[in-house]
Amino acid sequence: MCQSTVRKILEMEYRFLGNTGLKVSALGLGAWVPEAKEILQDAFNSGVNFFDNAEVYAGGKAEQVMGQAFKELDIKRSELVLTTKIFWGGEAPNEKGLCRKHVIEGTQASLKRYGVDYFDVIYAHRPDVTTPIEETVRAFNHIIDKGYAFYWGTSEWSAQQIEAAWGIAKRLGLIGPVVEQPEYNLFHRDRVEVEYEPLYEEYKLGLTTWSPLASGLLTGKYSKGHIPEGSRLSLDAYKSLRERLLTEENLEKVDKLKPIAQEIGATLAQFSLAWVLKNPHVSTVLTGASKREQFEENKEALKFLPKLTSEVIEKVEDVMKNKPTPPKNYREWKP
């Protein structure tokens, strides 16, 4: 390993994935765009080792592109933490959901597309209310027993569903979900900061959070009456998301956050990423980048973590006015 690569790895922060011994980079990446290979190489050279994917992304093409990129880059498998998510695999009745058949067949198909022998982490991409949780728990343990993955987790499951999975796993002497992948950003906080609170203490649950920039809202590129051409929220497919996010109230908050970020020398995107990383329960923050310069900007977020003092956080709370209030009894809390 060259000296420059060693230096960059030393600059990256690594955190344990929940209550496991697996070390993951504080910043993770998911990418399958035309520049994927270059972005993945930049990320790896910067110390990123956590790379996220899912069977549903681009109908499986995302796994193919990412797997081929790593093969061409000739990076040792042991240096990477590769993940995928299982739920939406196809249109046939048993090509979606979390029944034992699809969990196993979906995992095998993802491994083939990726061109690897195993995943480090595999997620249940959403809860499946039509399949008994016990069947799902047994299926993911089968995946681990077969060596198809080392750990399993959930994505956008409720605290009650995660607790149910753990209860079954304990009763059967099986492995429970060690990590959850929820949305988490300055505009979306309740689940991470309140609903999951009992799970951190009880199961040492880790988090690999997504949408830290609220679909681009927290980059500051959107303003009232101006949506950049080609941006995600300019697309017709994201019309409902655009209407929900680009409200006058949200845009005003973004404008008030910008000078707070500037006070510590950060862009709003870097500031927003650092804010998510400030949460001690977050193992890694998943970033997306369609251009290399976006990744170059995002990776600098780590250096602003020490500058997020209590005074700075208080200014943020004064702007956002959305700090969740924990209930007296977490078991009775409802989203």
Rank of each mutant, 00 (worst) to 15 (best):
S283I: 00
I9H: 15
Y57K: 10
G97Y: 11
N45D: 15
V81G: 06
P335Y: 12
R100Q: 10
F187K: 03
A139R: 00
Q294L: 10
V33G: 02
D52R: 00
Y196S: 07
T20D: 07
K37D: 06
E249V: 11
H125L: 10
K8N: 14
A69G: 08
E35G: 10
T247C: 14
K71T: 14
T247K: 04
V192T: 06
L217A: 11
L277C: 04
A109L: 09
V121R: 07
E293W: 06
G153C: 13
K299L: 03
E193H: 05
T107A: 07
G89F: 05
K71P: 08
I39Q: 13
E243Q: 15
E183F: 10
W157S: 00
S158K: 03
S234A: 15
H102C: 05
S4Q: 15
R171V: 01
I175W: 03
A149I: 02
A58G: 07
R126I: 09
L174K: 08
M320W: 11
N49F: 10
L82V: 07
I104M: 14
Q270H: 00
Q3P: 07
E63P: 13
F150D: 12
A124G: 09
C2K: 05
E296D: 13
N94Y: 14
A269F: 07
T267A: 03
M1E: 07
A69Q: 11
H125T: 05
G167H: 12
K61T: 10
K323G: 09
A43N: 05
K112I: 01
G67H: 07
E193A: 00
V121I: 15
A159T: 04
D236P: 01
P280K: 13
D145A: 14
I133P: 05
E297L: 00
Y184Q: 05
G30D: 06
P127R: 10
R242A: 02
F304L: 02
R113M: 08
W88T: 01
V285S: 15
H188G: 00
F150A: 01
H188A: 04
A31S: 15
E79G: 03
T130N: 13
C99Y: 07
I168G: 02
S290L: 08
A269D: 00
L213Q: 09
G115M: 10
G30L: 10
V121T: 12
V103K: 00
V179T: 13
L40C: 02
K71V: 15
L29Q: 11
F271T: 10
V33H: 08
K170G: 00
R189V: 15
R244D: 07
Q64R: 09
S234H: 01
A69N: 12
I143Y: 01
K323F: 06
S231Q: 02
Q262V: 01
E296K: 14
T5E: 03
L10A: 14
F295I: 09
N322L: 12
G220W: 11
F304R: 04
S158R: 12
L217E: 04
H188K: 02
P306A: 12
E135Q: 12
L246C: 05
E95I: 09
A109S: 15
N94H: 14
L218M: 09
R242D: 04
E293F: 05
V6Y: 06
F87W: 15
L17Y: 05
V254D: 09
R331N: 15
A109G: 12
P324Q: 14
D145V: 01
V103L: 05
E13L: 09
V137A: 09
F16N: 13
H226W: 02
L233K: 10
Y114A: 13
W166K: 11
